[in-house]
Design a protein around this nucleic acid. Sequence first.
DNA 1: GCCAACGTTGGC
DNA 2: GCCAACGTTGGC
Length: 152
Amino acid sequence: MRYWLMKSEPEEASIDDLANAPKQTLPWTGVRNYQARNFMRDTMQIGDGVLFYHSSCPEPGIAGLAEVVSTAYPDPTQFDKKSPYFDPKSTQETPRWMLVDVRFVKKTPLISLAALREHLELADMRVLAKGNRLSITPVTDTEWRFITKRLA
DNA sequence: GCCAACGTTGGC
DNA sequence: GCCAACGTTGGC
């Protein structure tokens, strides 16, 4: 059982979109970074906890909790010529991009980036590291407990 | 819109 | 394998 922080632009997929999705579940499409893909493909397991983070928006921060509900499978958008995530170098036989399904757990009061930075206990969070751009980052047990028990 | 930081590409 | 150029992320 591991924990993750996953960034999503709310204009594309917000915590409300997840809550309103069929089965409250969405495929995590569009990851086009190898490190983030490898986390989904190699390390994520069904049942892992997810901090759902809104990025590139007026109020960036953790907006809810979710969970991983599938193992990794090919991201269908890589094969869709009309998708902005289309990848001409990917083939059905050797798909380049993988994803997992994520299910809504609950909304939280927005835990802003500034609020996260205020807590010494969270100072080492990967997502807070200078220059971090990874859209999926591991969260430690301690960080997860602190956030879910104290802030969420 | 700016810009720092990082990842990817491609020529050599 | 190096590295300059370019593209993207994402907070501000």
